[in-house]
Amino acid sequence: MVRPATRAGRIERRIARAERGPADAVDAGPSRRGRRSTPYLLVGPGVAWLVLLFVVPLGSLLVTSLKTGSFAEGFETAVRLRNYSDALSESWEAIKRSFVFALVATLAAAAIGYPLAYVIAFRGGRYKGLLLGLVVLPFFTSFLMRTLAWKTILSDSGTLNTTVDRLHLFGALEFLRLVPEGSDRLLQTNIAVIGGLTYNFLPFMVLPIYVSLEKIDRRLVEAARDLYSNAFRAFRKVVLPLSIPGVMAGSLLTFIPAAGDFVNAELLGGPQQTMVGNRIQSRFFEQVDYPAAASLSFVLMALILIGVLLYARLLGTEELTG
């Protein structure tokens, strides 16, 4: 936290400064020359890793996305920008759907994840480790297995589906556009896919929020209470602002993979839940049209990047970096 933007942040900084005492304000002295290379050495492996496994594949993807030709006559290196306009126009519905699904799933994950992280951080006591372990526990089984298990849970003749039907909740779901008109099933609908995304990415929301809540100085909350804030006000004025970086990080960790996901739509959705990931998959494997698949991947990447930049702009970058 370089430049605390909130009042609570300033208070925290003041407390921190008081704790360190005045001696700490003066730096330990000039660094020796040899130390200058240390940061570069430290960052080297990371940079090499990124170049080799991110920049190079990305470049190769970019080259592929501009190629012409087909699998039969071979793909020729070219600058065919048409691939991009085709990708946008042919898959626009799927792209829109992916962003809506990912957004709703992120909001749902935040709504579920925040209280969960809050309880673990503030009320977890000695069970904190255990509770966190439980949040992560599903990761020990295959992502695919868990998603397939949801197929069984949501099955037409399953208890959940029958219960929703008995309670006449399908009308409400229909109103929210979570199931198609006149639907009497949950599986292969919007709600199944959004639910699957929420479920699968929930830990990515919970963990960063937990970390940001955990490091909040409890004395700040006490100070707020001492200054006659009620519990809710203390939460709103102190805890919530200080935990925003966690929410921000969690949202990105949930939204980005969710927007590109295709397994949930494939298994829990039907043709009407086709996401952009499914389009990329079918272009790559069914149509063997690598340039189309690559340009669509780039379109997705660009749109996510724009979304993230807008989001960061909206909330401020210091919130993003914590």
């Binding site: 087909s70 699998f71 039969a72 519905e93 043709p271 389009r279 079918s282 272009r283 149509q287 049209d289």
Partner: peptide
């Protein structure tokens, strides 16, 4: 033919994805 394969597959794949 290869051209037909591409054309048919594209038509078909788009027809089973809404």
């Amino acid at each position: 033919s290869d051209e037909e394969q591409i054309e048919f597959t594209t038509l078909f794949q788009d027809s089973i994805q809404a």
